[in-house]
Design a protein around this nucleic acid. Structure first.
Length: 378
RNA sequence: GGGCGGGUAGCGAAGUGGUUAAACGCGACAGACUGUAACUCUGUUCCUUAGGGUUCGGCGGUUCAAAUCCGUCCCCUCCCA
């Protein structure tokens, strides 16, 4: 259908409606394993598991598109093993769509145990200490083996407040790596490779990076290097810089963002796709996302509270269990607590994205935002 | 009845004369968490009107100074009768 050249495309993207109040986009993202309404939130399943949940539950609390991670699956169990079982989809028996991150984020999160060179990144294995090396070509090769519908360029995710000189060098290298990755990509008709825009807080570097990637013509573009410790204002500013630079007919993916307020603000700034570990990590640490704000379910105040986690939620956890019971599960270190709150948090974001999409279709996203924040604190 | 060891903050447990309100662990109470090195990490945890005050089974001593030394009493473990 929308495939430029006549060849099969791994993904196609249609923008169906633009919200008159904010300019936010409603669209459909077609993959070979399902079509998805956007804006969409994608739960993170780093090691081919959305922590604590099984596939049925993941299906219930996602729209059918989840993440895996190149670096972690490369180390364990190894991408060849996964390839031989039909990729991540066959390996974990996930019937829907997948996206893999390239390992670029680990260049940031594992910064103490890695070295960056033009050729690629040397890591020290975080458990064994063994020397590892990943080039942009390696990352793509591994992602070809993992077989996700959407894959990412190998980038450097630099600290947000690196010096301008460092950031410029880093961005230029990330662009070269994107080019190398694109050349190494073996099956672009099955897997859509996205370029990742870096540049920290700098408008000129962000725009330069975006333009260079657009020149290479990727089927979608990611925005990286955000939600790494900078303020929300700084993050929103970067999105504003890029809003009119990024191609309007390609999906825009804001990597690593997933607080309710950031999702709304991101959508308003033209973002179509999000992922984040926040809902599941917070859940495992005993915090719930609710329509009135964050609830730390471990707190003593919920000891005898027989109301549901979120009184406005219709998920099975809120329909069944009390805050008192959930708090008890956490205080007594029972795994079920982590599972139930993970389920609820993802459901909450799924519902939020649904509400956002409806608001866009009805040209009232700004009203929706104001209503949402009227009840929501923190 | 005799002998040994012991009683330290909510619990466990260091400390055997002087920066010791007392290590550390657990528990408790808070906080953090945004492309997952994460069931992880951080802080507080005798009282306080924040100046101080009162502590290491009880009472009484020694000393400039005691959880630490001495006497005595109470309680606990184990062993012998």
């Amino acid at each position: 259908m929308y495939n430029n050249g006549g060849d099969r495309m791994a993904i196609t993207f249609e923008v169906k409606h633009i919200d008159k109040q904010t300019g936010a986009r409603y669209g459909i993202l077609h993959t070979l394993h399902g079509s998805f309404e956007t804006p969409i939130f994608m739960p993170v399943g780093t090691k081919a598991t959305v922590k604590t949940l099984d596939n049925i539950e993941i299906s219930e609390v996602s729209d059918g598109l989840i993440l895996g991670n190149t670096y972690h699956l490369w180390l364990q169990p190894g991408d060849e093993i996964i390839k031989n079982q039909g990729g991540i989809r066959g390996f974990m028996k996930w019937e829907h769509a997948l996206l893999t991150d390239s390992g670029g984020f680990q260049v940031f999160s594992l910064s103490d145990i890695r070295k960056i060179k033009e050729e690629g990144v040397t890591f020290r294995h975080h458990k064994s200490g063994e020397q590892l090396f990943m080039s942009p070509e390696d990352s793509i090769r591994i992602q070809n083996n993992l077989g996700a519908d959407i894959i990412m360029s190998f980038d450097e995710c630099p600290p947000f407040h690196s010096s301008y000189e460092y950031m410029k060098d880093s961005v230029e290298r990330t662009i070269r790596w994107a080019e190398r990755g694109k050349k190494a990509h073996q099956n672009p008709t099955d897997q859509a490779l996205f370029g990742i825009v870096q540049g920290g807080p700098h408008k000129d570097l962000r725009i330069m990076c975006a333009k260079a990637l657009i020149e290479m013509d990727f089927p979608g573009y990611s925005i990286g290097g955000l939600s790494v410790g900078e303020s929300k204002e700084e993050m929103y500013k970067v999105l504003d810089y890029l809003k009119d630079v990024m191609p309007s007919d390609k999906p825009r993916y804001l990597m690593g963002v997933g607080t309710p307020d950031d999702l709304i603000e991101g959508v308003i700034r033209g973002i179509d796709m999000f992922d984040c570990v926040n809902p599941t990590r917070m859940a495992r640490h005993g915090s719930a996302m609710t329509s009135i704000g964050r609830i730390v379910i471990k707190n003593k105040t919920y000891e005898s509270d027989i109301t549901p986690l979120d009184p406005n939620c219709d998920c099975k956890v809120c329909q069944t269990h009390s805050r008192s019971y959930l708090r008890h599960l956490f205080k007594s270190e029972e795994y079920l607590g982590q599972r139930l709150v993970s389920y609820h948090n993802l459901y909450f974001l799924k519902k939020l994205m649904k509400d956002i999409r409806n608001a866009i279709l009805e040209d009232r996203l700004l009203d929706f935002k104001n209503e949402f924040f009227a009840n929501y604190y923190k």
